[in-house]
């Protein structure tokens, strides 16, 4: 790691101010940032740790929405009675991120802000059409993810919470990379009335994306059988030593079916 100054602001205002400094990076759970720093792939001058901001932690039900603070850990979401009752698919996703130790530190805000193409959360945020709220504004999921490691967030902008609509049948199925256990392919499906949203992580060369052919197939018939014979084009799908595009594209179909079958 290169040297940096560490800050642990006690208020959001102070955090925003620090995060706005040149070469500042926000430290949430740290499970992407710290390995990156260890490899000397980033050299921030300031690290702004959000752990003291209690208002960014926890799960609440408000106006029919699950509001999850950005600094809420994966373990908290996975175990939350509210999440389990209102969006069990989301709880299931959180329970499968990384390993138990990672889930104790990693946060939803960190995961979504980082938009790692193999992270789990972006698929749920996109499929559930969640709203990301920052210190400045609210952004819908469709406008938030801008490509691999790219989001609509401005420099120094801090996610405060993410709000998920409830009353939606949803499910998640992941095929993990055998080595890293990140998603090789992860598919989150959500039934929005007669429509369906299907978001895919791990597979897109440009990060999380919606699988329109699968969404069309599920329209009006939210069942695994509706996906029989439906496939996703391998164009724009990642290819690496673990899985080529054709295999990943195939897995998207398989995981989508399993996600629908598991949805409730």
């Amino acid at each position: 790691m290169y040297e940096f100054d560490y800050h642990r602001p006690g208020t959001l205002d102070a955090a925003v101010k620090l995060a706005g400094e040149a070469d500042a990076k926000i430290l949430a759970g740290g499970h992407t940032l710290i390995p990156t720093l260890k490899q000397r792939l980033a050299a921030p001058k300031h690290l702004v740790d959000l752990h003291a901001l209690r208002e960014l932690q926890g799960v609440h039900l408000k106006d029919g929405h699950l509001v999850i603070g950005a600094m809420t850990t994966h373990a908290h979401v996975a175990d939350s009675a509210l999440v389990k009752a209102h969006l069990p698919g989301l709880a299931q996703l959180a329970a499968g991120i990384g390993d138990p130790h990672v889930r104790h530190r990693g946060t939803i805000g960190g995961s979504v802000a980082n938009n790692d193409p193999a992270a789990d959360y972006p698929s749920a945020v996109l499929a559930l059409n969640a709203t990301i709220t920052t210190n400045k504004r609210s952004i819908t999921a469709d406008d938030f993810f801008k490509g691999m490691f790219e989001t609509a967030l401005a420099e120094g902008e801090i996610i405060t919470h993410i709000s998920f609509p409830t009353g939606i049948k949803s499910g998640y199925a992941k095929f993990p990379n055998p080595a890293s256990r990140y998603a090789l392919v992860g598919v989150f499906v959500a039934q929005h009335g007669a429509d369906a949203r299907v978001a895919v992580t791990g597979a897109g060369a440009n990060g999380v994306f919606r699988a329109s052919t699968l969404e069309a197939a599920l329209k009006g018939n939210f069942s695994a059988a509706a996906l029989d014979g439906k496939s996703v084009s391998a164009d724009g799908i990642n290819s690496d030593m673990h899985a080529d595009a054709a295999y990943r594209a195939h897995l998207i179909g398989v995981m989508a079916k399993r996600a629908v079958a598991a949805a409730h």
């Binding site: 055998p178 080595a179 890293s180 990140y182 030593m241 673990h242």
Partner: peptide, 28 residues
């Protein structure tokens, strides 16, 4: 089932961490 050191054509070891070299874990 899991392990294999992979070099690219330029001789870079692509499997140089547990992110890419599959170590057997308990659930394997």
């Amino acid at each position: 089932l899991l392990e294999g050191a992979i070099y690219d054509k330029d001789g870079q070891l692509l499997t140089a961490s547990y992110m890419d070299y599959t170590m057997p874990r308990a659930d394997d």
